[in-house]
Every structure is written in structure tokens, then in C-alpha cells.
């Protein structure tokens, strides 16, 4: 199936130009990063009214900078270039990001961008879960200038973000906590080309042998936006990350999520798998921090 409503295509050369085009087109335009997500929507008949595509690949938003306190990643950074970066591979904090980009095949890694992965506001995608676990900040530029906000504010509903008309994501910032931190991501899917049944991203920080500020997020068939497991996080506050606490946190996570049943999996199965994946991710991270 082709997107036959499409009339125009533009490749702006600057953020300002992109914002101006997007503002002029309003609801009839769709922004693409690598274009891997829109194709899936079009093929399933979920996008039928887009008249303009705005390709951001010429904005040169593919920078990666690594300061002591913050990692800055341009929105157009592809999964393949993340994978090729020695810094991304070596910073223990970024485990969730590394593990999330390991899932797609090379052909997708070459095209898919981190900005596109979050801007779609789709809880089935992996980027939202990884960046939520990392407490990422989103930088966006629009007609009213540039602003920065925590990534959990981006996800308003399925396919709906807090971006105002004309606004585009330019950068994702990952703060580097002063404590020793590590993160992990894992998902279950029916086939490599299907949406995830559930996905899990966690981050733990250790200081003086005691954990603080855990992040546990679940994506997949669990609701309109990714779910934050606050009860499970609370279990791990001041924990020494022993097997017993990890098990209790996994049990809390599967108890607090409210997944749905569909042709991919029942709600009961999603709860069970969430418990398994949370336990595995936490064990992996605890092991790295020990």
C-alpha cells in the first residue's frame, strides 16, 4: 500500500526552515527521521491522510557529545552510529540504550533515528523505554523557540506527544548521575518483525552499597504510554540489591501494571513476562554494579 495522499516532500537544510515548513503545513504534514516507523503504519493502513513529508536528514542533527554530567545525542543519530560509537559502548550507564538498539536488523539500524523512535510516541517501540529508564531530557525547537523537558512529558497518548504545532525534537540529553549507575533493557516479541508483547527498561544507582533512585519502565501492550513501576522502584530504595529484593521488585512490577489482552498475548501472560523481564534486567544491572 502506498501513501497516495502524499503531494509533497521536503528536505529542509536548517531547523528554522523545518519549523517554518511544518508550521505552514499544520496537521497535513508528517516529520520523518529515518522513515522506518511511518512505513509500518502506512502498510497497516493506519496513516492515510498525510499530504507532506518533511525529512529531517539534512539538518545534521547527528552529533554525540560526552560531558562529565550529560551525554547529548542529536535527534537524527541512527542506531548504527550509536552502535559504532566507542563511548556509547563503554559507558555503563547506557546499557539500556545499547541493548535496545541491538534488536533491530542492520537494515533498520542504518535508517532508524533516536528522535524518530521517541517522537512516534508509541509504547511498543524500544527507544521510549530505554530513554525513560535513563531519565532523559528532550530538547525541542518550534515557532516559540527552544525548550527542554523530561522525556516522560513527551508521551501524552498513543501517537500523541506534547509537541506543539511546528515543533521538532532536536536532541536527547542523558544526565550522568554522580553515583555509580547502570541500566538494562529486554523485550519479548512474537516475531522479529512484530510489536513487542512487553518490554522493560531499568536503571539502578549505587552509593555506599545502597541503591537509590531506581527507574523501572514497561512498554508493549500495557497501555497508551509506557508505564512506570513506582511500587517496584520503592522496593529497591536503600536496597543492597540482593536476590530477595530483586524478586520482590519484580513481583511488585507485575502486580502494578495493567496490561491488556489481544491476539499477541493475554493480559495474564503480559504480567508474567513483565515479572520475568524485570527480574532479569535488575539482576543484570545489580551484577554490573557489584
Amino acid at each position: 500500500m502506498a501513501l497516495t495522499t502524499l503531494q509533497g516532500f521536503s528536505q529542509p537544510n536548517s531547523v528554522e526552515e523545518a519549523v517554518a515548513i511544518l508550521q505552514a503545513c499544520q496537521d497535513s504534514a508528517m516529520v520523518i527521521g529515518g522513515g522506518t516507523f511511518i512505513h509500518g503504519l502506512v502498510a497497516r493502513g493506519l496513516v492515510t491522510d498525510v499530504e507532506q513529508l518533511i525529512d529531517l536528514s539534512r539538518l545534521n542533527l547527528n552529533h554525540m557529545t560526552f560531558d562529565e554530567n550529560v551525554i547529548r545525542l542529536g535527534a537524527s543519530t541512527s542506531f548504527a552510529s550509536l552502535e559504532a560509537s566507542a563511548e556509547i559502548q563503554n559507558i555503563s550507564l547506557l546499557g539500556a540504550l545499547r541493548e535496545a538498539i541491538a534488536y533491530p536488523p542492520r537494515q533498520v539500524k542504518n535508517a532508524a533515528t533516536i528522535g524518530g523512535g521517541v517522537a512516534a510516541s508509541c509504547p511498543y517501540l524500544d527507544m521510549p523505554i530505554a530513554f525513560l529508564a535513563l531519565d532523559a531530557m528532550v530538547c525541542a525547537t518550534g515557532p516559540d523557540g527552544t525548550r527542554e523537558f523530561p522525556i516522560d512529558e513527551l508521551f501524552v497518548s498513543l501517537f500523541e506527544t506534547n509537541l506543539i504545532p511546528g515543533e521538532i525534537i532536536t536532541e536527547i540529553k542523558v544526565p550522568q548521575p554522580s553515583e555509580q549507575s547502570a541500566s538494562s533493557f529486554e523485550k519479548m516479541e512474537t516475531t522479529a518483525n512484530d510489536l513487542s508483547i512487553v518490554s522493560v527498561g531499568v536503571r539502578l544507582s549505587l552509593s555506599g552499597g545502597s541503591q537509590s533512585g531506581a527507574r523501572i519502565f514497561v512498554g508493549g501492550g500495557i497501555g497508551e504510554v509506557p508505564f512506570r513501576c513506582c511500587e517496584a522502584e520503592a522496593v529497591l530504595e536503600n536496597s543492597e540489591l540482593n536476590a530477595e529484593d530483586i524478586k520482590r521488585a519484580a513481583t511488585a512490577a507485575k502486580g502494578e501494571i495493567e496490561p491488556f489482552s489481544d491476539h499477541r498475548a493475554s493480559a495474564q501472560y503480559r504480567k508474567h513476562i513483565t515479572g520475568v523481564l524485570v527480574r532479569r534486567c535488575l539482576a543484570r544491572v545489580a551484577n554490573q554494579l557489584s
Partner: peptide
């Protein structure tokens, strides 16, 4: 739908699914 790979081509030397590339 970008999953089976028989449409693979190289774009500037990098493999891509041509079925999902405009």
C-alpha cells in the same frame, strides 16, 4: 513491511530495506 530483507539494497554502502525507503 521491512522485515524479510529480500528488498535489501545498499545506500551509500549501507544496507537498507528499499521497501520502506522513500
Amino acid at each position: 513491511t521491512g522485515g524479510c530483507g529480500c528488498c535489501t539494497v545498499l545506500v551509500n554502502g549501507e544496507s537498507r530495506y528499499s521497501c520502506m525507503t522513500y
